[in-house]
Write a protein that binds this DNA or RNA. Structure first.
Length: 572
RNA sequence: UGGGGCGUAGUCAAGCGGUAAGACACAGGAUUUUGGUUCCUGCAUUCGGAGGUUCGAAUCCUCCCGCCCCAGCCA
């Protein structure tokens, strides 16, 4: 009976969305008492760049696991390389993790805080004959390492005595050698089939000031040495990293075993790849340095700061990370899924407003010149508690240029000569005349309205096929609106010979003179809205100025008309 | 061609010897004062391939094929 119940429970757990192999491992460990019921994870960024959506996957995983199993998650800056790391990055990383909604409380750690302990561990290794100081140059070390198919050869310095190694290592620490003159290496096996195990470097000399330890050290531990021991020092239980570290796990285990240190387990999962973008630090840096984008927080960037500035919400990003799953196979997630996640959240939470991006002037000929009126509009049909607002209507309005066609194709059921449509929350109008300028361009539409249809319903029951958004010209708030699209034209830019050649030339379109309903004059930075029939937009936090707001398009609404148009184009 | 991983739909992904979940995308239809939302419906007779074990295989075994990672004093 109880057995049955347990079996049922297990299968239910497994069927939960978001169940994955790492949870299975943790649950098995919890059951066997492997770590006395503890679950301790960590997010260990190197402070040498900005966090991106791929990091968000790892953050959600590590913090999420700690939350789910009542454990803890440490934020640890893996700052073992003073050549690349800066304080600016640690600040941005902290801001991004916090913004995503995770709290590391007082558990903010730095590998550099362990330098003294790490040094002592290294000394212990030397004393046990498990490490030696090598005086080969980096070039020679590479030659001695062998290749993928041939074993390496031992360094001529490999059999130095413990005493000599101790003395040399001490001299390294004291700065008596120049950079590159020697390194500390683990003494493992130069013929190991896993190249990582061919006497890996543990310490190298770097005569560079460190952003936290200053001039205290001139030798710095390598990742493989520092990481496992930092995990050990912090009592991590599950050390979760990406697949490319799989080969390093053998060394992770070797070091902890030799030192008889507390031994967390390393678990690898596949890193995130997202279609139509790049997520490698190198490529992201290149986009910034070569000015293809306007900085790390350019709204087209897949960085957390870019997504934030674009208008993405932390909840949508967390939802995305929950949905993509955690597995061991390389994958490429469709950007459409991320877009779906924001739309889903914003549909429930974003206030609806009307904004005309490409204005076309409309004059309501039978509406009195000096008259205007306030019409009630629903703030969010998905959430009644968001209430109503009133928007001004008058004789001269703007509608979207794309909502009018002089010679409408099949299935276009918006405004056209002689045709009647509804202006949302206002009246039915009929297009009576098209007025052109001297260039033959459409300058304005002359229309009539039906006073009986106030609010949008005809008492005689007649129907219209379209409802248009609009803004009263006299009351409009002008704005700049930036339309963003995929940064790259192809699904996987990384597999191109040169990813810079497939940058989408239309990834940004800046529209000025957009006309918004007047309430938007006091929109606060970061505020998110749905511009009805167009998409979700947010107020840019950097470029907006009082009286001249700048909006970023977060994502379009799903657009069936665009699909029909595309299909029609392909037919012709 | 050394070692380590991974192959389930267009894209993710569950599945753990009992007869292919779910999501996104896509395609139809209904409702709609957003061509939005919502709601229905459809979308793998088959799990990289071939053999084998078994009453029964995506799950176990064998061989083959394909893709990814490793030759930093980066992480």
């Amino acid at each position: 009976m109880s057995q049955n119940h347990d079996a049922q429970k297990t299968s239910e757990t497994r069927k939960q969305p978001g169940s994955h192999f790492i949870k299975h491992i943790i649950e098995a460990d919890l059951e066997s008492g492997k770590y006395d019921g503890r679950v301790v994870t960590r997010f260990p960024p190197e402070p040498n760049g900005y966090l991106h959506i791929g990091h968000a996957k790892s953050i959600c995983l590590n913090f999420g696991l700690a939350l789910q199993y009542q454990g803890r998650c440490h934020l640890r800056f893996d700052d073992t390389n003073p050549m690349k790391e800066e304080m600016e990055y640690v600040e941005s990383i902290k801001e991004d993790v916090r913004w995503l909604g995770f709290d590391w409380q007082e558990r903010e750690y730095y590998t550099s805080d362990y330098f003294q302990q790490l040094w002592q561990f290294a000394v212990a290794l030397v004393k046990n004959g498990d490490a030696y100081v090598d005086s080969l140059s980096s070039d020679q070390i590479r030659q001695y390492r062998g290749t993928l198919s041939e074993p390496g050869r031992p360094s001529p310095y490999r059999d130095r005595s413990v005493e000599e190694n101790l003395e040399l290592f001490e001299k390294m620490r004291r700065g008596e050698f120049a950079e590159g003159e020697c390194v500390l290496r683990a003494k493992i096996d130069m013929a190991a089939p896993n190249i990582i195990m061919r006497d890996p470097t543990l310490y190298r000399i770097r005569k560079k000031s460190h952003h936290r330890t200053g001039e205290n050290w001139c030798i710095y531990p390598m990742y493989d040495f520092a990481h496992c021991l930092s995990d050990s020092i912090e009592g991590i239980t599950h050390s979760i990293c990406t697949l490319e570290f799989e080969n390093n796990r053998e060394l992770y285990d070797w070091i902890l075993d030799r030192l008889h240190a507390y031994h967390p387990q390393q678990i690898e999962f596949a890193r995130l790849n997202l279609s139509h973008t790049v997520l490698s630090k190198r490529k992201l840096i290149e986009l910034v340095r070569r000015k293809y984008v306007d900085g790390w927080d350019d709204p087209r960037m897949p960085t957390i700061s870019g997504l934030r500035r674009r208008g993405y919400s932390p909840g949508a990003i967390r939802d995305f990370c929950d949905r993509i799953g955690v597995a061991r196979r390389d994958s490429m997630v469709d950007l459409a899924l991320l877009e779906h996640c924001v739309r889903q959240e914003l549909n429930k939470t974003a206030m609806r407003v009307m904004g005309v991006l490409r204005p076309l002037r409309v004059v309501i000929e039978n509406y009195p010149e000096d008259q205007s009126e306030m019409l009630p509009a629903v703030n969010n049909p998905e959430d009644e508690s968001m209430g109503n607002r009133h928007i001004p209507f008058s004789r001269v309005l703007y509608i979207e240029r794309g909502d009018f066609m002089e010679d409408p194709p099949k299935k276009f059921f918006r405004l056209a000569p002689g045709r009647e449509v509804r202006l949302r929350y206002a009246y039915f109008i009929r297009c009576e005349q098209v007025v052109r300028d001297k260039n033959g361009e459409i300058a304005e539409l002359r229309c009539t309205y039906d006073p009986e249809t106030r609010g949008g319903d005809a008492p005689d029951g007649r129907k219209v096929k379209a409802t248009l958004h609009w803004v009263s010209a006299a009351h409009a708030q002008q704005a700049t609106v930036r339309l963003y699209d995929h940064l790259f034209t192809v699904e996987n830019p990384a597999e191109q010979p040169d990813f810079l050649e497939v940058i989408n030339p239309d990834s940004l379109e800046t529209l000025t003179g957009c006309m918004l309903e007047p309430g938007l004059a006091k929109a606060a930075a970061g505020q998110r809205y749905q511009f009805e029939r167009l998409g979700y937009f947010s107020v840019d936090s950097k470029d907006s100025a009082p009286g001249q707001p700048v909006f970023n398009r977060i994502v379009t609404l799903r657009d069936t008309w665009a699909k029909i148009q595309k299909a029609q184009k392909q037919q012709n």
